[in-house]
Design a protein around this nucleic acid. Sequence first.
DNA 1: AAGTACATCAACCGCAGGCCA
DNA 2: CTGGCCTGCGGTTGATGTACT
Length: 259
Amino acid sequence: MGRQPCCDKLGVKKGPWTAEEDRKLVNFILTNGHCCWRAFPKLAGLRRCGKSCRLRWTNYLRPDLKRGLLSDEEERLVIDLHARLGNRWSKIASRLPGRTDNEIKNHWNTHIKKKLIKMGIDPITHEPLHEEATTQEMPIYTDAGPKTDISLPELSSENEDHATTTDNLIENCSADETSLLKPHDDDDDPMLSYILSDAFLDAASWNFKADGDEYSVLGSSSSDDNAAWLLDYHDFGEENFDLGCLNNLNMNKLEMGKN
DNA sequence: AAGTACATCAACCGCAGGCCA
DNA sequence: CTGGCCTGCGGTTGATGTACT
């Protein structure tokens, strides 16, 4: 039988994306959407594998991406979700608006994992690495199972808006997915319970609300020459495609970043 | 200043699973 | 039901940046 390669390897470019390629990809998606990633490169005039295009879009160019380091709150959420879901990064990412599975996975491997190990917590099982390690800053465990408490800040006032909103919606949330997760009593954590529910995803049909300076510009790793076309991207998007998600704040930052 | 080690993260690879003819 | 196609996922790699000697 054999499986057809995802793309014709010949003539397919690999490695880092150039500003020009990014522009083509974004322009094409804004104009036509992405109906079929396989055919996408040809249609968009890119010498890339469709897979690579999808990855570039979902992990880097999507306008709703929140870039920069994860906040303490997000980190706490990732740890909690990981304790329940394991390495299902896409599931975890789906609960963190503006974050990608790749981003979370990387952050987990480079930051959180080390942090947990340092604290004597096994990052895989979320249980103490050593018996004697369960002192001082060690996590608090309940009968319901491992529960990490890494002394991260509680929900701060700046998060209250979201918390309030979610509290309002929580009554209607379906527990379908939650029930699929490994047994855990989330009753004591309505916020988390809600985040684990589908209602969260629905409610978070994200308006991409800018959250302080956490949002950075598209293509933040790119050099200044990228900024110009990204500004075009903004104009193009807003005028022609009603991309409300590209809010003014983001674009102001984009311009500021240019300076 | 130069060399080396380490950290970070964008991107690649191969597989699994859903969908459809 | 079966087989092929396509997408999405998770693990891994490698280029680049940063810290240290």
